[in-house]
Amino acid sequence: MPDIALYVNGLKWLGWQEATVTRSIDAVFNQYTLRLTSTWPGAPGAGIPPVKKGDECSLALEGETVVTGFLNNVRLKVTADGFDLTVDGRDKTALLFKGAVLNTPAEWSGKTALQIAQEICEPFGITVRALSSVGAVFKKFTCQPGETANRAIQRLCGHRALFHYADPAGNLILANADAATPAARGLALGFDGKTNVESVTFDDGLDGQYSDYVVYNQKPGLSFGGNPHNKVLGRAKDHTVRQYCPKVVIANEPGDTTAARDLAVQTAALAAARALALSYETPDWRPVPGGKLWSINTTTPVTDDITGVKKTMLIKKAVFHVSEEVAETSTLTVVDPKSYALIAEPEDNVGGWS
C-alpha cells in the first residue's frame, strides 16, 4: 500500500486499507473516503482512531497534500471481533455550498469578481486567487438574502466567463479557459502497443446539444412578440445532432447580424465541446515517477485508437483509488478544452437570481 496520511488534531494516522480521493472542476470542492478495518489489537475498543465529524484535517498521498478541510462524516461499526471505520472528508470550499452570505451590506460597487469573491470567502477562512484576468469591475453586485456563498460566486464568475474550483490547500481558484497548464505526460491507447492506460470509458450524450441555435434580439422593456425589432439575427447549426431540436438564445444587448451569428456559433461550439467526456484509468497516481500527482485544469495530449480522439484534452476530474485488493489507479476524465471557454452573461441580472 502507498503512503496515505490523514493529519487530524496534530496527529498523523496511517494504515488505511482503502482510499478514494476525488478532485473535480465541476464539483468545485475536493473530497475523499478512507476505510480501516481491524481486529482488536488488545482490549475491545482499542486502536480506533479518535476522529469526529468536524475535525479539521488534511490528507496526503505519498507526501503530497491533496485535500485540506474537515471530516464531513464518520461511520463506525463495532463487533466482538473488531471494528470497521469509514471517514469522509471534504475541503474547506465545501462550506461555500452550505453557508449563506452574511456580509453587511452584501452589495459591492466598483470591485472585480476576485475582490468580491475574496470578501465573500473571508469569513469561511478561505483565500481566493486568480489564474487569469478577471475582467472589469462590477458597477453593482448584490447577494440575495439567504443566497449561498457558492451560488453568489457562481453568478460572479458567470458574468466574467470564469469558473472556480478548489486547490489542494482548500482555497479557491478563479480561472478561464486559457489558464490550464500542460500535464507532464500524455494518454495513449493504441493498437501498436504504445499504451499507458488500462481502460477508457466513452460518454457522449445529446442532453445539452441542439440541432439549431437561433439568436433573437430583444430590447429591454419591450414586448418580445410584438416588437418589429425583435427579429432573428443569427443562426448556427450542429450537424452532429440529427433530430430537429432548436434552441433560442435571447441577445441581451443590441447587435448586428455578424455579432448575433458569432454568438450562435459560440453557443453551439460550447455545447458540442461539453457533450463528449472520456475517462481513462491509469496504473499510477503520477504522470512521471517522482513528479507531482495528476492534477485538474491541466491539458494532456490524447492518442486513442479506440475512440478516434487524437488531440489535446483538458483534465477536469481526477480520482485516485487504492485498496488492499487493487493497486493504486488514477481515473482521469478529459474533455475538449473549449468546454470551459465560457460565454459571459450580461450584467443586468447581478442583483437577483438567474
Results as ranks from 00 to 15, higher is better:
5 A>Q: 10
7 Y>W: 12
11 L>I: 12
13 W>F: 14
16 W>M: 11
21 V>G: 07
22 T>M: 05
23 R>A: 13
26 D>Y: 05
27 A>F: 02
28 V>R: 09
30 N>T: 04
33 T>D: 11
33 T>Y: 06
37 T>Y: 04
38 S>R: 15
39 T>M: 12
42 G>L: 08
45 G>W: 04
48 I>F: 01
62 E>T: 13
64 E>R: 05
66 V>A: 10
66 V>W: 06
70 F>H: 05
71 L>T: 09
74 V>F: 09
81 D>F: 06
87 V>W: 10
88 D>P: 08
95 L>R: 15
113 A>Y: 02
116 I>V: 13
119 E>M: 08
121 C>D: 06
123 P>K: 07
132 S>K: 08
133 S>R: 01
134 V>D: 02
137 V>G: 09
157 C>F: 01
159 H>Y: 02
161 A>Y: 09
164 H>N: 12
170 G>Y: 01
176 N>K: 04
176 N>D: 15
179 A>M: 04
183 A>C: 03
187 L>D: 00
193 G>Y: 00
204 D>N: 13
211 S>R: 03
211 S>F: 06
215 V>L: 00
221 G>T: 11
224 F>I: 04
228 P>L: 11
228 P>A: 00
234 G>A: 08
240 T>N: 14
240 T>M: 12
241 V>K: 00
245 C>P: 05
246 P>D: 01
246 P>K: 07
250 I>H: 04
250 I>M: 12
253 E>W: 10
257 T>F: 07
262 D>A: 09
284 D>I: 11
291 G>E: 05
292 K>M: 14
292 K>C: 03
301 P>T: 10
310 K>V: 13
310 K>L: 11
317 K>V: 09
336 D>E: 07
338 K>S: 13
345 E>M: 12
346 P>S: 13
349 N>A: 15
